[in-house]
């Protein structure tokens, strides 16, 4: 992957087995995730996405039992040697279920929870709360009760709560699985902004490849606990074996592949899809497409 940026998370021959099971949920993972990147993990259910996320934020091996071999390095330090609290300073976590990760009764308190745990001075908290809330665009919800929020708002609150701790890495486990299309869009827009503006490394496990194609620099496809494919979304989607991995391609990509077998510049986003279609229509076919865009 990108040679210039230093690695922030590094898997070295990492394997993991959940307690009371015989098969490995992760098998011999070798990955280097550079700082400041936006990386998507995808694959069918049971491929090991959640397990991978949990091994980055230290839930594995600290909270879940089980057996692991190899190492996960956070900025060069093995997760096994750090406590979950120490890992929490570096890695912010957002889970899939917006209900289950909200601990407190009101928005402000939810953000304060982490800050109080880490003993942040009260004077500094105010500043951090305001910044975190505004960077996910929910400043107006500050004094609301968490129960009255919508799914998308709850998920953005979960992101804000993680951001308040100023992490360098944000890991998200299917953050949009319980959200409607609008909420999904909200969450990914926020993630992209955080990545671009604040340089936070975003690692997201997600089923919706269309979203990943649009936002990610790198895409990792997991299959049965192993890294099946890795690279930029375009490289990955071009790969022939992708059809056997149980990953749904973005529809525009699928269209191009079926039409001419990927001999052209492969479209992966809607905009590129439109360009692709235009090229097919004699005379540019401009008007129709323009209307559908606006």
């Amino acid at each position: 992957m990108t040679a210039a940026a230093e690695p922030v998370v590094c898997f070295k021959r990492f394997s993991y087995r959940y307690p009371n099971t015989d098969f490995y949920a992760l098998k011999d993972i070798n990955l280097t995730l550079p700082k400041g990147s936006f990386i998507g993990f995808t694959g069918p259910t049971g491929a090991g996405k959640t397990t991978l996320i949990k091994s980055i934020n230290g839930i594995i091996p600290h909270v879940e039992g089980g057996a692991c071999s190899g190492q996960v390095l956070l900025k060069g330090c093995p997760t096994g040697n750090l406590s979950t609290a120490e890992i929490g300073r570096l890695v912010g976590t957002v889970l899939d279920d917006p209900e289950a990760q909200i601990i407190c009764l009101d928005v402000e308190q939810e953000l304060v929870f982490g800050l109080e745990n880490y003993g942040v001075p009260p004077d500094e908290m105010e500043q951090r709360i305001t910044t975190a809330l505004s960077s996910v665009g929910i400043s107006h919800l500050r004094h609301r009760s968490t129960r009255s929020l919508s799914g998308g708002q709850k998920q953005r609150l979960a992101i804000a709560a993680a951001l308040a701790l100023l992490p360098e890495v944000l890991v998200l486990d299917e953050p949009t699985s319980e959200l409607d299309p609008l909420g999904t869009e909200e969450v990914f827009t926020v993630l992209k902004q955080l990545n671009v503006k604040h340089g936070i490394t975003v690692l997201v496990a997600e089923q919706k490849t269309e979203l990943l194609a649009r936002h990610c620099d790198q895409l990792v496809i997991l299959s049965q606990g192993e890294v099946a494919l890795a690279g930029t979304p375009r490289e990955v989607f071009k790969h022939k074996s992708i059809y056997h991995l149980g990953v749904a391609l973005p529809q525009v990509t699928e269209l191009a592949l079926r039409l001419n077998g990927g001999r052209c510049h492969l479209p992966i986003t809607l905009e590129e899809g439109i360009e692709f279609c235009r090229a097919l229509v004699p005379g540019g076919g401009g008007k129709l497409c323009n209307r559908s865009l606006t």
């Binding site: 609290a85 109080e116 745990n117 880490y118 709560a161 993680a162 701790l165």
Partner: peptide, 20 residues
């Protein structure tokens, strides 16, 4: 799940402070 959420947000990491 709640335990995981709390754990990743530094529950029990040492000296606490209070906001207000």
């Amino acid at each position: 799940r709640l335990a995981i959420a709390m754990e990743t947000r530094g529950y029990g990491s040492g000296i606490r402070t209070y906001y207000k």
